[in-house]
Every structure is written in C-alpha cells, then in structure tokens.
Design a protein around this nucleic acid. Structure first.
Lengths: 127, 127
DNA sequence: CGGTATCCACTGCGATACTG
DNA sequence: CAGTATCGCAGTGGATACCG
C-alpha cells in the first residue's frame, strides 16, 4: 500500500511477476460488479437505505430470487449491510457500507473511459 | 457529455431516470472486463505487442480456444488490434488499441478501491 | 504457427410457485 | 413482507483433437 502503483503498464498481470495483491484487489472489485443486477442494486442503494420490496420496485424487471441472491453476495462481500428491525412485521433494511459508498470513483473511472471509448469507436466507424 | 458527472450518488441507476449514456458507458467498461481471461490478456499486452503463442506462454493455464475467443471479443470491442504480417510463416500480432491503453485509470481505480476494501474487511474481521 | 471442431460440465439467470 | 424451492434452459469455459 505504501508505494503508489503508478503504472499498470509497469507490471505484468500474469502469471509470475505480477503483484499478487493488485490482482486480488482487481478481482475483488470485479467480483463486486459482475452479475446482471449488481450495478442496479448498488444504484438503488445510492439513494439511501431501502427495504427489500423497495428495491424490487426500484428494479422492476428483477425477480425475488435474483434480488435475494445479489443482496446476499453483496453482503458477503461487504458492500451492503442488512439490518433487521424486530417490529411486528419484521422490517429488513439494506444499506451501502462504507466500502460500498467508496466504490464511486471506480464507477466514475469506468464511465469516463466508457464515454470516451464510445466516442472513438464512432470515430473509427467501428462497431 | 458536457456536464461532468460529479456524483453518482446524484442519479439512480434504475430504471427510468438514470442517464442512459452513463449506464451504457458503465456496461461497455464492464463488458470489456468480464470473462475469466480478459484481465490476463490485457495484462499480457500492456507489456507490448505480442504474438498468439507469446500470449499463450504468458498465460500458461489458458487453452487456445479460450485465448482465441477472448482476443476476438477484445478485438470486436476495440480493445486490441490484430495485424497479420504476410511473411512465409504468417505472423499475427496483437496489440492494445488506444482505448485499450486508456483503460488503465479504470484498473487503477479498481485496485485502489480493492486494496482499501481489503483493509477494511480485515479491520472488521469480516469476509 | 495460429488457430477450429467437438463434446461436455457447470453455472447464471429467468419463471413460477410456495412459505414463515 | 421477505424471502426460499424447484425447474429448465442458454451461455461460459475446460479438455482434447485436429487443420492449413
């Protein structure tokens, strides 16, 4: 962590001489983002704490099985927290953790790249 | 594109009122990175232009079918370029395109987040 | 050398129905 | 309300063999 990893280009990702921790970190980030609904779920929670059914309404096309699965994965990965309020009908609330909120710069980088990339794809007449 | 997208938190990702282009950009970025070997292939090519068999040696566990497939996808997505030198035994070389090289900040953001996230996971005794 | 072809296992995801 | 159970299918990826 001490040395800033200035250049990606300076190291190889595979297999021997690649900084293991960077690959792990990269994979962590990727794991958080893969799966059809992760982005949507995180997006839903960026507007604040929500209950299961609220998220469902936020992402109309998702089915409860998938939502449950994605939430569980995000929870295991420390991106969202799940809290149960023991009222008469129990209330379950999901919320982004600190890590979950801090993922924003990653999205921003992806969006920046994606927009620029789209532009150059168009310029090249490319697909 | 004019307005910098300062805050992710300011918009919802799903479904109606999310800036479509951001979602598209985000998905573009994600598409480039998903698949078991994409990261490795890009990593291999960050150290420069390489031939098919060189990449294979760089990623020993990959099989030719997968390498071929991943390279084709990366090519279609404008991340790598493929050039054939018409020597007697034809030489095929793969190289990162401009877009391919420019993806570095995305990786850096992911690594930064991943490293920090790992730290806080440990602090919380979590995982 | 730079790939394809074939086959097969595993998994992601959707649809639908059901439960404490 | 907040999920789980079951099924089924399409897509991903591995192993191995083969080709110009």
């Amino acid at each position: 962590m001490k040395k800033p990893f200035g250049a990606w280009v300076d190291f190889r990702l595979s297999p021997q001489d690649c900084p293991k921790e960077y690959m792990l970190a990269l994979n962590d980030a990727l794991n958080v983002l893969t799966g059809k609904w992760k982005l949507h779920v995180i997006g839903a929670l960026t507007t604040g704490k929500k209950r299961f059914s609220e998220i469902e309404r936020f992402i109309p096309e998702i089915n409860p099985r998938m939502l449950s699965k994605e939430l569980k994965e995000l929870e295991v990965n420390g991106i969202v927290s799940r809290t149960v309020q023991d009222r008469s009908p129990a209330i379950v609330e999901y919320e982004l953790t600190k890590s979950g909120k801090e993922i924003k710069p990653v999205f921003d980088a992806m969006i920046t790249w994606g927009l620029e990339h789209r532009q150059s794809s168009i310029r090249n007449g490319g697909k």
